[in-house]
Amino acid sequence: MSSFFDRYANPTRFMRLATAVVPWTAAATLLLLGSGLYFALFDSPADYQQGESVRIMYVHVPSAWLAMAGYSTVAVASAFALIWKHPLADLVARAASPVGACFALLCLVTGSLWGKPMWGTWWAWDARLTSVLILFFLYLGHMALLNAFDDAARGARAAAILALAGFVNVPVIKFSVDWWNTLHQPASVSKMGMPSIDPRMLLPLMLMAVGYTCFYVTVLLLRVKGEILSAKIRALRLSLMQVANQ
């Protein structure tokens, strides 16, 4: 375990690895989202109850999954930062947070656009909807704390503690539709062995979900690279100032 981290969590080696991986994940993103959009918009059936509005599912559900995956990234990176004080972990949490926040926002907005024609309302204080709204606020709090202190290390520490405490919300989101009697429908995909979704709808949903995941990995790697370079720039500026003062 620790030798694995010594090997790949070294910033220089991470930069090299990310540079090698990004073209592939970017290409996979384009291919998967391209074919996913084709099936989602042209070659999948309308729902027998919801009609054509069901096509919102193909952008709504993947953004919901990514909103939770993004928060899990932030929480796991925060745990590594707090426990092992790994320098890369703070940068990963900082890089992932705004991306996850964007997906949480997309999930809320596309859900609202789906809810209006189907439920007759843009918003309801339903357990699923409310817990995703809380997720969005946790992201905002995390980003605000990161920049709230003059000492960046203190900000990172405070944000990491918030991220870990807020992680309890992720299973609440997942199981909210089972625990409470929600307006939001329960999961259609995860019922293993008894698929409750038409295979012709499952195909575009899965293509979009894997495509969104590849997109997330690509953007995250680019952003972590950016954070590593920022740290190098800060260190270089500091040493240049010291040289100038001598």
Partner: peptide
């Protein structure tokens, strides 16, 4: 099918 005002904004925003 009459849902254009909901489907297209969802895709465009994403």
């Amino acid at each position: 099918g009459g849902y254009a005002a909901f489907v297209w904004p969802a895709y465009a925003l994403s």
